[in-house]
Protein backbone atom coordinates (compact mmCIF):
# COMPACT_ATOMS: atom_id res chain seq x y z
CA UNK A 1 0.00 0.00 0.00
CA UNK A 2 1.22 3.50 -0.81
CA UNK A 3 1.85 6.12 1.82
CA UNK A 4 -1.11 7.48 3.78
CA UNK A 5 -3.04 10.46 2.48
CA UNK A 6 -3.39 13.62 4.52
CA UNK A 7 -6.79 14.21 6.11
CA UNK A 8 -9.12 15.68 3.53
CA UNK A 9 -11.05 18.04 5.82
CA UNK A 10 -9.91 21.30 7.30
CA UNK A 11 -7.46 21.26 10.14
CA UNK A 12 -9.30 21.62 13.43
CA UNK A 13 -12.74 21.39 11.86
CA UNK A 14 -13.80 18.68 14.28
CA UNK A 15 -13.02 20.86 17.25
CA UNK A 16 -15.81 23.23 16.24
CA UNK A 17 -18.56 21.13 17.76
CA UNK A 18 -17.15 20.99 21.31
CA UNK A 19 -16.24 24.67 21.05
CA UNK A 20 -19.76 25.60 19.99
CA UNK A 21 -21.23 23.41 22.72
CA UNK A 22 -19.24 25.45 25.25
CA UNK A 23 -20.54 28.67 23.72
CA UNK A 24 -24.09 27.33 24.02
CA UNK A 25 -23.61 26.53 27.70
CA UNK A 26 -22.22 30.04 28.24
CA UNK A 27 -25.23 31.56 26.49
CA UNK A 28 -27.62 29.45 28.55
CA UNK A 29 -25.97 30.65 31.76
CA UNK A 30 -26.03 34.20 30.46
CA UNK A 31 -29.71 34.10 29.60
CA UNK A 32 -30.58 32.70 33.02
CA UNK A 33 -28.53 35.31 34.88
CA UNK A 34 -29.24 38.40 32.78
CA UNK A 35 -32.55 40.18 32.96
CA UNK A 36 -34.39 43.30 33.97
CA UNK A 37 -34.91 41.95 37.48
CA UNK A 38 -31.63 41.69 39.38
CA UNK A 39 -31.31 38.12 40.63
CA UNK A 40 -27.81 37.30 41.93
CA UNK A 41 -26.25 34.13 40.45
CA UNK A 42 -26.47 32.19 43.71
CA UNK A 43 -30.21 32.82 43.89
CA UNK A 44 -30.56 31.84 40.22
CA UNK A 45 -28.89 28.55 41.11
CA UNK A 46 -31.13 28.14 44.16
CA UNK A 47 -34.19 28.74 42.01
CA UNK A 48 -33.00 26.14 39.50
CA UNK A 49 -32.48 23.63 42.32
CA UNK A 50 -36.07 24.21 43.38
CA UNK A 51 -35.09 26.20 46.44
CA UNK A 52 -35.96 29.63 45.12
CA UNK A 53 -38.58 31.76 46.74
CA UNK A 54 -41.24 34.13 45.51
CA UNK A 55 -40.30 36.40 42.70
CA UNK A 56 -36.82 34.91 42.08
CA UNK A 57 -38.36 31.54 41.39
CA UNK A 58 -40.99 32.99 39.08
CA UNK A 59 -38.45 35.08 37.17
CA UNK A 60 -35.94 32.26 36.73
CA UNK A 61 -38.23 29.27 36.31
CA UNK A 62 -41.32 30.78 34.68
CA UNK A 63 -39.80 33.59 32.62
CA UNK A 64 -36.12 33.07 31.85
CA UNK A 65 -35.92 29.29 31.59
CA UNK A 66 -38.77 28.76 29.09
CA UNK A 67 -37.52 31.72 27.05
CA UNK A 68 -33.99 30.34 26.96
CA UNK A 69 -35.26 26.94 25.90
CA UNK A 70 -37.64 28.34 23.31
CA UNK A 71 -34.95 30.72 22.04
CA UNK A 72 -32.37 27.97 21.81
CA UNK A 73 -34.70 25.55 20.07
CA UNK A 74 -35.94 28.22 17.66
CA UNK A 75 -32.48 29.44 16.78
CA UNK A 76 -31.26 25.89 16.27
CA UNK A 77 -34.25 24.96 14.12
CA UNK A 78 -33.85 28.02 11.88
CA UNK A 79 -30.12 27.45 11.45
CA UNK A 80 -30.46 23.72 10.76
CA UNK A 81 -33.17 24.38 8.17
CA UNK A 82 -30.94 27.02 6.58
CA UNK A 83 -27.97 24.64 6.44
CA UNK A 84 -30.12 21.90 4.91
CA UNK A 85 -31.68 24.09 2.24
CA UNK A 86 -28.39 25.74 1.30
CA UNK A 87 -27.00 22.27 0.67
CA UNK A 88 -30.11 21.09 -1.12
CA UNK A 89 -30.19 24.07 -3.47
CA UNK A 90 -26.40 23.99 -3.85
CA UNK A 91 -26.46 27.67 -2.99
CA UNK A 92 -24.61 28.97 0.06
CA UNK A 93 -26.83 32.06 0.05
CA UNK A 94 -30.19 30.27 0.11
CA UNK A 95 -32.49 31.42 2.89
CA UNK A 96 -35.13 29.20 4.56
CA UNK A 97 -37.66 31.71 3.28
CA UNK A 98 -36.97 30.59 -0.27
CA UNK A 99 -39.36 27.65 -0.04
CA UNK A 100 -42.23 29.99 0.85
CA UNK A 101 -42.56 28.98 4.48
CA UNK A 102 -41.86 32.42 5.98
CA UNK A 103 -44.10 34.39 3.66
CA UNK A 104 -46.87 31.81 4.01
CA UNK A 105 -46.61 32.14 7.77
CA UNK A 106 -46.51 35.94 7.49
CA UNK A 107 -49.67 35.91 5.38
CA UNK A 108 -51.45 33.68 7.87
CA UNK A 109 -50.28 35.92 10.72
CA UNK A 110 -51.53 39.03 8.92
CA UNK A 111 -54.89 37.35 8.25
CA UNK A 112 -55.16 36.41 11.92
CA UNK A 113 -54.18 39.86 13.17
CA UNK A 114 -56.37 41.84 10.77
CA UNK A 115 -59.36 39.53 10.32
CA UNK A 116 -59.05 37.48 13.53
CA UNK A 117 -61.67 39.66 15.21
CA UNK A 118 -64.29 38.58 12.65
CA UNK A 119 -63.19 34.98 12.95
CA UNK A 120 -63.51 34.80 16.73
CA UNK A 121 -66.86 36.59 16.50
CA UNK A 122 -68.11 33.77 14.28
CA UNK A 123 -66.41 30.97 16.18
CA UNK A 124 -66.22 32.08 19.80
CA UNK A 125 -64.56 28.84 20.93
CA UNK A 126 -61.37 29.85 19.08
CA UNK A 127 -58.61 30.85 21.46
CA UNK A 128 -57.14 34.06 20.04
CA UNK A 129 -53.85 33.61 21.84
CA UNK A 130 -53.29 30.25 20.16
CA UNK A 131 -54.83 31.17 16.85
CA UNK A 132 -51.86 33.20 15.60
CA UNK A 133 -49.13 30.57 16.07
CA UNK A 134 -51.31 27.75 14.79
CA UNK A 135 -52.32 29.77 11.74
CA UNK A 136 -48.71 30.83 11.06
CA UNK A 137 -47.53 27.23 11.26
CA UNK A 138 -50.27 26.02 8.93
CA UNK A 139 -49.73 28.93 6.54
CA UNK A 140 -46.03 28.17 6.29
CA UNK A 141 -46.64 24.51 5.49
CA UNK A 142 -49.36 25.27 2.94
CA UNK A 143 -47.10 27.73 1.12
CA UNK A 144 -44.26 25.18 1.02
CA UNK A 145 -46.68 22.54 -0.24
CA UNK A 146 -47.71 24.86 -3.07
CA UNK A 147 -44.07 25.57 -3.95
CA UNK A 148 -43.30 21.85 -3.95
CA UNK A 149 -46.34 20.95 -6.03
CA UNK A 150 -45.58 23.60 -8.66
CA UNK A 151 -41.98 22.40 -8.96
CA UNK A 152 -42.86 18.71 -9.22
CA UNK A 153 -43.59 16.94 -12.49
CA UNK A 154 -43.94 13.18 -12.83
CA UNK A 155 -42.72 12.68 -9.28
CA UNK A 156 -39.52 14.63 -9.89
CA UNK A 157 -39.08 17.83 -7.92
CA UNK A 158 -36.73 20.29 -9.57
CA UNK A 159 -34.59 22.36 -7.21
CA UNK A 160 -34.34 25.36 -9.57
CA UNK A 161 -38.08 24.99 -10.12
CA UNK A 162 -38.58 25.24 -6.36
CA UNK A 163 -36.53 28.41 -6.18
CA UNK A 164 -38.59 30.01 -8.95
CA UNK A 165 -41.90 28.81 -7.52
CA UNK A 166 -40.74 30.09 -4.13
CA UNK A 167 -40.12 33.54 -5.56
CA UNK A 168 -43.60 33.55 -7.13
CA UNK A 169 -45.32 32.29 -3.97
CA UNK A 170 -43.42 34.82 -1.87
CA UNK A 171 -44.53 37.62 -4.20
CA UNK A 172 -48.17 36.52 -4.07
CA UNK A 173 -48.11 36.16 -0.29
CA UNK A 174 -46.51 39.57 0.11
CA UNK A 175 -49.11 41.15 -2.17
CA UNK A 176 -51.88 39.70 0.00
CA UNK A 177 -50.03 40.85 3.12
CA UNK A 178 -49.96 44.32 1.53
CA UNK A 179 -53.71 44.15 0.99
CA UNK A 180 -54.23 43.19 4.63
CA UNK A 181 -51.91 45.97 5.77
CA UNK A 182 -54.01 48.37 3.73
CA UNK A 183 -57.16 47.05 5.44
CA UNK A 184 -55.62 47.13 8.89
CA UNK A 185 -56.11 49.79 11.51
CA UNK A 186 -53.27 51.45 13.34
CA UNK A 187 -53.04 48.88 16.09
CA UNK A 188 -53.24 45.86 13.80
CA UNK A 189 -50.51 47.38 11.68
CA UNK A 190 -48.32 47.82 14.74
CA UNK A 191 -49.05 44.29 15.90
CA UNK A 192 -48.05 42.90 12.53
CA UNK A 193 -44.92 45.04 12.36
CA UNK A 194 -43.82 43.79 15.76
CA UNK A 195 -44.60 40.21 14.71
CA UNK A 196 -42.32 40.59 11.70
CA UNK A 197 -39.50 41.70 14.03
CA UNK A 198 -39.78 38.56 16.13
CA UNK A 199 -40.01 38.20 19.88
CA UNK A 200 -39.68 35.55 22.54
CA UNK A 201 -41.84 37.51 24.99
CA UNK A 202 -44.69 35.04 24.48
CA UNK A 203 -42.60 32.04 25.48
CA UNK A 204 -44.15 30.54 28.59
CA UNK A 205 -44.14 26.85 29.51
CA UNK A 206 -47.36 25.81 27.73
CA UNK A 207 -46.29 27.44 24.46
CA UNK A 208 -42.76 26.13 24.78
CA UNK A 209 -44.05 22.63 25.44
CA UNK A 210 -46.23 22.83 22.34
CA UNK A 211 -43.50 24.20 20.07
CA UNK A 212 -40.62 22.09 21.36
CA UNK A 213 -41.49 18.75 19.72
CA UNK A 214 -42.19 20.49 16.41
CA UNK A 215 -38.80 22.20 16.63
CA UNK A 216 -36.86 19.20 17.89
CA UNK A 217 -38.13 16.42 15.65
CA UNK A 218 -36.80 17.96 12.41
CA UNK A 219 -33.59 18.86 14.20
CA UNK A 220 -33.02 15.27 15.26
CA UNK A 221 -33.91 13.85 11.84
CA UNK A 222 -32.10 16.30 9.55
CA UNK A 223 -28.55 15.29 10.56
CA UNK A 224 -29.33 11.85 9.13
CA UNK A 225 -29.51 13.49 5.72
CA UNK A 226 -26.03 15.02 6.03
CA UNK A 227 -24.18 12.48 3.89
CA UNK A 228 -26.69 12.31 1.06
CA UNK A 229 -26.83 16.13 1.13
CA UNK A 230 -23.04 16.21 0.81
CA UNK A 231 -23.34 14.03 -2.29
CA UNK A 232 -26.09 16.25 -3.67
CA UNK A 233 -23.75 19.22 -3.59
CA UNK A 234 -21.93 17.49 -6.44
CA UNK A 235 -25.18 17.58 -8.40
CA UNK A 236 -28.35 15.53 -8.33
CA UNK A 237 -27.30 13.14 -11.11
CA UNK A 238 -23.95 12.57 -9.45
CA UNK A 239 -25.67 11.90 -6.12
CA UNK A 240 -27.95 9.41 -7.85
CA UNK A 241 -24.91 7.60 -9.27
CA UNK A 242 -23.59 7.34 -5.73
CA UNK A 243 -26.73 5.48 -4.71
CA UNK A 244 -28.58 8.41 -3.12
CA UNK A 245 -32.38 8.30 -3.45
CA UNK A 246 -32.35 11.90 -4.60
CA UNK A 247 -36.08 12.53 -4.81
CA UNK A 248 -36.76 11.01 -1.42
CA UNK A 249 -33.94 12.96 0.24
CA UNK A 250 -35.12 16.17 -1.40
CA UNK A 251 -38.67 15.63 -0.20
CA UNK A 252 -37.55 14.80 3.34
CA UNK A 253 -35.19 17.79 3.49
CA UNK A 254 -37.88 20.22 2.34
CA UNK A 255 -40.62 18.82 4.58
CA UNK A 256 -38.43 18.70 7.69
CA UNK A 257 -37.02 22.18 7.03
CA UNK A 258 -40.51 23.58 6.49
CA UNK A 259 -41.64 21.97 9.76
CA UNK A 260 -38.71 23.48 11.61
CA UNK A 261 -39.06 26.96 10.15
CA UNK A 262 -42.85 26.88 10.39
CA UNK A 263 -42.70 25.98 14.07
CA UNK A 264 -40.01 28.61 14.69
CA UNK A 265 -41.96 31.36 12.96
CA UNK A 266 -45.16 30.33 14.72
CA UNK A 267 -43.43 30.45 18.09
CA UNK A 268 -41.55 33.72 17.71
CA UNK A 269 -42.53 35.62 14.58
CA UNK A 270 -40.03 36.38 11.85
CA UNK A 271 -36.44 36.24 13.02
CA UNK A 272 -34.10 37.03 10.19
CA UNK A 273 -30.42 36.34 9.72
CA UNK A 274 -30.15 33.13 11.76
CA UNK A 275 -31.18 30.72 9.01
CA UNK A 276 -29.17 32.50 6.34
CA UNK A 277 -25.90 33.32 8.00
CA UNK A 278 -25.37 30.88 10.86
CA UNK A 279 -24.70 27.93 8.52
CA UNK A 280 -22.45 30.20 6.53
CA UNK A 281 -20.47 31.10 9.64
CA UNK A 282 -20.06 27.45 10.55
CA UNK A 283 -18.95 26.66 7.01
CA UNK A 284 -16.33 29.41 7.09
CA UNK A 285 -14.66 27.65 9.98
CA UNK A 286 -15.47 23.97 9.47
CA UNK A 287 -15.80 23.62 5.72
CA UNK A 288 -18.89 22.49 3.86
CA UNK A 289 -19.27 18.95 5.24
CA UNK A 290 -22.91 18.79 6.30
CA UNK A 291 -22.01 16.29 9.04
CA UNK A 292 -20.36 19.25 10.78
CA UNK A 293 -22.41 22.11 9.35
CA UNK A 294 -25.82 20.80 10.47
CA UNK A 295 -24.98 20.10 14.14
CA UNK A 296 -22.66 23.14 14.23
CA UNK A 297 -25.47 25.35 12.93
CA UNK A 298 -27.82 23.95 15.55
CA UNK A 299 -25.39 24.88 18.33
CA UNK A 300 -24.49 28.31 16.94
CA UNK A 301 -28.08 29.17 15.99
CA UNK A 302 -29.25 28.30 19.50
CA UNK A 303 -26.42 30.33 21.04
CA UNK A 304 -27.04 33.34 18.84
CA UNK A 305 -30.75 33.53 19.54
CA UNK A 306 -30.34 32.87 23.26
CA UNK A 307 -27.68 35.57 23.53
CA UNK A 308 -29.65 37.99 21.39
CA UNK A 309 -32.75 37.47 23.53
CA UNK A 310 -30.77 38.03 26.72
CA UNK A 311 -29.73 41.39 25.26
CA UNK A 312 -33.25 42.09 23.96
CA UNK A 313 -34.54 41.69 27.51
CA UNK A 314 -31.93 43.88 29.14
CA UNK A 315 -30.61 46.59 26.81
CA UNK A 316 -33.78 48.69 26.92
CA UNK A 317 -35.10 47.40 30.28
CA UNK A 318 -37.77 47.63 31.51
CA UNK A 319 -38.86 47.66 27.85
CA UNK A 320 -37.85 44.96 25.35
CA UNK A 321 -36.20 45.23 21.98
CA UNK A 322 -37.47 42.99 19.18
CA UNK A 323 -35.05 40.05 19.14
CA UNK A 324 -34.96 39.97 15.33
CA UNK A 325 -33.24 43.36 15.40
CA UNK A 326 -30.54 42.01 17.67
CA UNK A 327 -29.83 38.79 15.78
CA UNK A 328 -29.05 40.95 12.77
CA UNK A 329 -27.27 43.63 14.77
CA UNK A 330 -24.99 41.07 16.45
CA UNK A 331 -24.65 38.62 13.60
CA UNK A 332 -24.10 41.13 10.81
CA UNK A 333 -20.92 42.82 12.03
CA UNK A 334 -19.57 39.51 13.34
CA UNK A 335 -20.10 38.00 9.91
CA UNK A 336 -18.37 40.95 8.22
CA UNK A 337 -15.47 40.57 10.62
CA UNK A 338 -15.10 36.90 9.75
CA UNK A 339 -15.29 37.68 6.04
CA UNK A 340 -12.59 40.34 6.19
CA UNK A 341 -10.36 38.10 8.28
CA UNK A 342 -10.77 35.33 5.76
CA UNK A 343 -10.14 37.62 2.81
CA UNK A 344 -6.77 38.61 4.25
Amino acid sequence: MSQALPAAGRAGARRILPALALVLVAMLVLSLVLGAVAVPPDRVLAALMGQGTGRDAVVVLQLRLPRAIMGGATGAALAVAGATLQGLFRNPLADPGLIGVSSGAALAAAVTIVLGGHLTALLPWLQTAWLLPVAAFAGGLVATRVVGAVATRDGVTSAPGMLLAGIAVNAIAMALVGLLVWMSDDRQLRDFTFWTLGSLAGADWPRTALALPLLLVPMLLLPRLALPLNAMMLGEREAGHLGVAVQRIKRQAVVLSALAVGAAVAATGLIGFVGLVVPHLVRLVAGPDQRLVIPGSALLGASLLMGADALARTLAAPAELPVGLLTSAIGGPFFLWLLTRRAR
Binding site: G9, M233, R283
Partner: peptide
Protein backbone atom coordinates in the same frame (compact mmCIF):
# COMPACT_ATOMS: atom_id res chain seq x y z
CA UNK B 1 -19.53 22.79 -6.91
CA UNK B 2 -20.21 26.05 -5.08
CA UNK B 3 -19.10 24.79 -1.70
CA UNK B 4 -15.50 24.69 -0.63
CA UNK B 5 -14.96 20.96 -0.29
CA UNK B 6 -11.34 19.95 -0.62
CA UNK B 7 -10.40 17.66 -3.49
CA UNK B 8 -9.92 14.88 -0.96
CA UNK B 9 -13.43 15.37 0.44
Amino acid sequence: LDFGFTAGE
